[in-house]
């Protein structure tokens, strides 16, 4: 096993299978899915609804253990089948940034506090955490709403705050599930470009589940999922 940080891969998923329920209600949502994401690589995951994209992303995000298969993050095996190989919660805190379709902010914290809390959980002192949080929000164009509660923000603003939170701890893995659904095409593209920038500058591995085919040129690699089967496809901009 390679020590963390030395692997050239951010994410290695091998033979991931997920079976929901059992007996009559059994659903195989993901079948033997394999994917490798290098450090600094930005990857798009396409596929129709119900294909198993979210199942894959949450498995790699260590919140939905696979039935079979192995997950390695920056060289460290973290899941072997459904069994955790490390403290998943602290691993998520340090290494994984999530952005989901619904913004998923904490309703009783202001926008800046939602970003700040991720930094403080990782041991950043309060003032420093607040400063970094405001900087990130400024970069994402939502610093003017810093002291508003999530309920006061538009869907797009909420989503950008969530992106700021995901990036706050400079994670080595960024997982985004349809992050631009609530954004207009300009903001959507901006977020995708930000992911690419973070990947290239910080050496993070990024997986983005998306339906937005207009922004595919931002990605390095494209995968598609259908009926739980994962496969890599030709880059459309290359094939054009």
């Amino acid at each position: 096993m390679t020590a963390i940080g030395q692997s050239e891969f951010a994410i290695q998923a091998e033979g991931l299978t997920k079976v929901y329920g059992s007996g009559n209600t059994e659903v195989v949502a993901m079948r033997d899915a394999t994917m490798e994401v290098k450090r600094g690589e930005v990857l798009a995951l396409l596929g129709p609804s119900g294909a198993g994209k979210s199942t894959f992303l949450t498995a790699v995000g260590l919140i939905n253990p696979p039935t079979r298969g192995r997950i390695t993050i920056r060289g460290q095996v973290v899941m072997d089948g459904p069994a955790a190989q490390t403290n998943l919660r602290s691993f998520r805190r340090r290494h994984i940034g999530f952005v989901f379709q619904k913004s998923n902010l904490i309703p009783f914290l202001t926008a800046v506090e939602n970003v700040q809390v991720a930094l403080e959980l990782n041991g950043a002192p309060r003032r420093k955490a607040r400063r970094s949080a405001l900087q990130l929000m400024d970069y994402l164009g939502v610093s003017d709403r810093a002291d508003n509660l999530p309920s006061m923000l538009s869907g797009g603003q909420q989503q950008r705050v969530a992106v700021a939170r995901a990036l706050a701890n400079r994670p080595s893995v960024i997982l985004a599930d349809e992050p631009t659904a609530a954004l207009d095409s300009f903001r959507g593209r901006q977020v995708m470009e930000l992911f690419a920038k973070v990947a290239h500058e910080q050496g993070a591995g990024v997986i983005v589940v998306t339906h937005d085919h207009r922004a595919l040129d931002v990605f390095d690699t494209i995968y598609e999922m259908e009926d739980g089967i994962m496969r890599q496809i030709e880059h459309p901009t290359v094939s054009l």
Partner: peptide, 17 residues
Amino acid sequence: KIHSIALLKLIGAPNTV
């Protein structure tokens, strides 16, 4: 607060928090 608690766990808040 259960949704917020799940979210805190998601972003890695330890049980002590």
